[in-house]
Design a binder for these strands. Sequence first.
DNA 1: AAAATAGTTGCAACCGGTTGCCTGAAATTA
DNA 2: TAATTTCAGGCAACCGGTTGCAACTATTTT
Lengths: 336, 336
Amino acid sequence: MQNKIPTIQEMARILKLSKSTVSRALRNHPAIGLRTTQQVQKLAKELNYEPNQMAISFSKKKTMSIGVIVSSLDVYFHKAVFGIEDCAYANDYNVLISQTRDEYDIEKKVLETMRKQRVDGIVASISRNAPDIEHFEKCKQYNIPVVFFDRVPDVPNINSVWCRLDISTVELVSYLVSKGHEKIALINGPDTLPIKNERLKGYYDGHIKNGLKVHEHFIKVADLSTVGTYEAMDQLLSHRVKPSAIITFNDYMSLDAMHYLRKVKPGRYPDIDFVTYSNLPTTRYLDRPPLAYVDQFPYEQGKLATEVLFRQLNGLAHPETTPPENLIIESKLVIY
Amino acid sequence: MQNKIPTIQEMARILKLSKSTVSRALRNHPAIGLRTTQQVQKLAKELNYEPNQMAISFSKKKTMSIGVIVSSLDVYFHKAVFGIEDCAYANDYNVLISQTRDEYDIEKKVLETMRKQRVDGIVASISRNAPDIEHFEKCKQYNIPVVFFDRVPDVPNINSVWCRLDISTVELVSYLVSKGHEKIALINGPDTLPIKNERLKGYYDGHIKNGLKVHEHFIKVADLSTVGTYEAMDQLLSHRVKPSAIITFNDYMSLDAMHYLRKVKPGRYPDIDFVTYSNLPTTRYLDRPPLAYVDQFPYEQGKLATEVLFRQLNGLAHPETTPPENLIIESKLVIY
DNA sequence: AAAATAGTTGCAACCGGTTGCCTGAAATTA
DNA sequence: TAATTTCAGGCAACCGGTTGCAACTATTTT
């Protein structure tokens, strides 16, 4: 009942040609005559021939697909994926997405799966609690280039694209100072080893630049859970000296922090101004949204990282003339 | 410099065995002796042998991967993808995700790509404005089963998993009535042909059940843009008789509608209660969130759809005893 | 002791393309 | 006219596994 799926050999049989000729004719190989080429392409169209991608991948040792590893497809990385897709599709590549849920073990597993699937290259943002990147070592052996983005491990000799936050954080502090704030707190994310801690650096630099003294108890670290943020807020606010503005690690944290201040303990403390990083589109619907945020341009990061990846892919044959690339883009302070 | 990637033939050469023996030994084939099997597996471990998935896919005509087609990886479909992944990974399958951005042309393109990649099966939520599903026809020829979920075309003889909304919508109306509302509006999504319009049905049924008359001007249709929602709200509120409660198509729309009422035209109209469908986690941070929402269980839908897909995949050899499945799950009214 | 059986392993085809090299015919040049 | 070049197409190996079947050895049965 079901139609047979046409293959090259089938078409060769029909046209009484060899399959190599058909293969070449389909790709407009110059060695094949015009008449033959047209004949073959006509038949291919009639039969709805579609090349078997599996066979091509196998024979060319190229899957024409790249792997993307992110912690989670939240709004932020979703934007990054769009950038990656746009670049990949423009190069006729497919995209395989895997989420690590920020767990090192899952990251190792999905990386292994991708290697076994023989993706041609990988764009990755490492897990927050990955202690190392040795699991990426094997990609070298398999000649699979890797470009890290956004969360970039702090080791030499890798491809990376990331968005520096220190300068914008200084601006963030300056902005708050210009609004009259002098007691500025920072609730940072977990302090994991392989990733740079630029929010903290910018926080210090911003205080120095504005001639403010840093109060160490204004600096808190929270895991990224709601409860963790509540605890950090609790500690922060239980101190004698209370901040008048808080810089939070990201928008999810700012939501929790604001919620704690205004809903969990309403009226207990004077209101506080918030500023944050990245940006959830839904934040703008809040009655009192954060005053400002630092845009980290996830779309652009994803796109750039993929461009780097393709340069590495094309340069695989000449590794000596294709050194690793490390691109840094500047984040931007956005005031509502 | 780079290590060679070990293959079966390489190991066969080292052990002076045939490659078929090595191949079988690696998979614990009973016909292979214990000593040989152990020997082979020992060497495989030493060499870090990893089977070439491309070669396996090619020779078995199975890619061990399924395709997922959704309009966008927003929060809602993101949950669905988790359900799909959980089920797929449990069956040692990989997942390829593609977003259509709700455009028919992109849907056709990604579907074609997946077919060329020879995914073993597809789980799809069709684009909102897809006029038909004929582009899925070719999957039959390629023996690629398709399971539609969430947005299910209303045609016979397909696999589908969806969540009925009519009963919950009746409950939604009843809930609002119990809160004293008698003038209840509905801002629905675009009325596209292939997908059932259960919100509207439930809206009518709910009015009948509660002995309320339906005012046609309380029923609006908006595209899913912010501006579209603003316009619908504007029309709704410009009428002499104003609603005291509004049912919105989804949470994004409720955010825009509330924003319009409270921020764009503040104080102009008496406040209105909102209820909605699905649920953004960030909604709870609003000062006046919707009172209730209808949970559509995207995770469960995704998981169930994938289970159906695997049953279809396993039944491919016996299509006569594997009829299409159509599962319907019940949505649930959740009151904050 | 011959025959049947069970347990191992190898041979070779196959999956559907790609590609280096060869061949034969036609066209051009010497 | 013979030699050379060009053009068009075919042959066969290859990518790295899987699999049906044959073959060989050792053991058991008759």
